[in-house]
Amino acid sequence: MKETNTTYKMFETMKQHKAMVTYHGEFTFESINNILLYARRDIKMRNVQKRTSKKVYAVLVEALENILRHGVEKDCNIKTTDGVFILYKTDNGFTIKTGNLIKNKDIDKLKSDIKEVSEKNIEQLKEAYRHQLRNGSISNKGGAGIGLLDMAIKANKDLSFNLFETDANTSFFELTININQEEETLAA
């Protein structure tokens, strides 16, 4: 009975918060493809402007790829990591939330990326993106070092981070990104 209540509470919470697509578990290239497929279908059904749906999709890909690229790798024959992902419908647009574990030895780079995104305005972020495009190189993790910049620019800087240690070896990274429909309409 208790178990049923727990599930019901989770169901109600997600419903209340208008969660559209949620995923908790192993992140692989294949599971990301499936999440994107469902998310894209669900966004389409909401009858939103095409430019909004495209923006949400673009941010979704970067956010999900970031989990796979930077999450603590599990000991497995394919690249996989644990994480959580939620796509919400909000009154003004969409909110994407992701969470994943990251090794403490890898957090310095993430911290400096977060600092950069927090301190720069949109124009400075665009300039940093251009600089990376021109001079950057692909890291051994397969990233171009511009995923976070790209998301921040697309979300018009409406994003927040949270990074805290969970134990001596790992930290948890939370990312929240809002894509605002209204602002976009005004800007059009």
Partner: peptide, 12 residues
């Protein structure tokens, strides 16, 4: 239609 940021670097 869409390209991710690491593809953008290669396209550049």
């Amino acid at each position: 239609d869409y390209f991710n940021s690491s593809s953008a670097k290669h396209i550049m």
